[in-house]
């Protein structure tokens, strides 16, 4: 999950996992009442209290979204203005190969970054041992990348990946590993960026999973120990199943963040990189159309495709969740 670097702040979020819960506690309580009638007793207060937040949402988020939809159906330039003409832009994008390639790259990236979740799980489990010394020390170190600026760390990583004098090649050379121009080689660039993606998100994933672990009742683990289960088996048969809600959440956050990945790629690859054609993500493509080629309408189409894909992938995740996530 790349932390957002734009004004909108939040990189990601999820719809509430417990959808069937509806209005949560409030409605549940209401249903229980004997004298029924008013299903909406708070209409007026809701309107008053929601006025400012909703106005802000409309002005800064919903209106831009509407504009984007209109723009995607328009033709024109920034100077001449735009007029709605129909679905030509959509056709141009969907017929062209670029968007599909970018989509594949984005999904590949998201899949690789998802590998960070099991890594974080192992680390979280190791850190969970209460008698272990220096737990907070480790947690601090693992967490530092989360609080740093993506732009700044991307610059550092680009330098480390340098094919001519980068630190990585030097280390690999010393141990007899392969060396190459990691972010300029079409075969490795996307993976190299994804490693940074994992690195940046590891702290967040670790913390969320650790919080989930705290919630696992110790008595269960102890019971398993008495049954003679070793630490590894205990981890898989007791801890992991109880941790599935946290794992699910971390996965959803990670995927949404990955689907919106832009800044790492932008800084680490640069504009004249031979690997760029094979590594562009969908948001990068949006940037290129909207801001480099100045084709805002086409950019709008790509942005909306990103939205649709994000919604679809998240929906699939929620659907699959029933198969493997157990809520206590």
């Amino acid at each position: 999950m790349a932390t957002g670097t734009t004004g909108t702040g939040a990189p990601a979020g999820v719809t509430p996992a417990r959808r069937s819960g509806g209005a949560g506690g409030a409605i549940g309580a209401g249903r229980g009442r004997r004298d029924r009638p008013n299903r909406y007793p708070d209409n007026r207060w809701a309107a008053i209290l929601l006025a400012v937040p909703f106005a802000g949402l409309v002005i800064f988020y919903l209106w831009p979204l509407v504009r984007t939809v209109l723009l995607s159906l328009s033709e024109g330039t920034a100077f001449t203005g735009y007029s709605v003409t129909g679905f030509d832009n959509w056709q141009r994008v969907l017929d062209g190969g670029e968007v599909w390639g970018a989509l594949v790259n984005t999904l590949v990236y998201a899949a690789i970054v998802l590998l960070g979740v099991p890594i974080a799980m192992v680390l979280a489990a190791l850190l969970h041992q209460r008698e272990l010394r220096g737990r907070s020390f480790y947690r601090t170190l693992y967490f530092v990348p989360v609080v740093t600026m993506p732009v700044a760390v991307a610059m550092v990583w680009r330098y480390i990946y340098n094919g001519d004098f980068g630190l990585l090649n030097e280390v690999l050379d010393a141990v007899g590993g392969p060396t190459r121009a990691w972010v300029a080689d079409p075969d490795t660039a996307l993976y190299a960026v994804a490693v940074v993606g994992i690195w940046m998100a590891l702290g967040t994933n670790l913390i969320i999973l650790a919080a989930g672990l705290e919630a696992v009742p110790e008595s269960l683990e102890e019971a398993a120990t008495l049954d003679g289960a070793g630490p590894v088996r205990r981890f898989f048969s007791v801890t992991v199943p109880l941790l599935t809600p946290s794992i699910f959440l971390v996965s959803v956050l990670s995927v949404i963040g990955s689907l919106q990945m832009f800044d790492l790629l932008f800084i680490m690859l640069g504009r004249t990189n031979p690997a760029l054609a094979d590594s562009k993500t969908i948001v990068y493509l949006f940037y290129e159309e909207a801001f480099v080629r100045n084709d805002r309408p086409l950019g709008a189409v790509i942005a909306l495709i990103t939205l649709v894909v994000t919604l679809a992938v998240t929906a699939v995740q929620f659907r699959l969740q029933r198969r493997w996530v157990t809520y206590a």
Partner: peptide
């Protein structure tokens, strides 16, 4: 609170989280 259109209004807030932030920049 319990009020009309609670679900749709909440959805308005949450859907924004799914949008790539770069999209908002120009209109904002």
């Amino acid at each position: 609170l319990r009020f009309r259109f609670r679900g749709p209004l909440l959805a308005c807030f949450l859907v924004v989280l799914m949008v790539p932030p770069q999209l908002f920049v120009i209109p904002q």
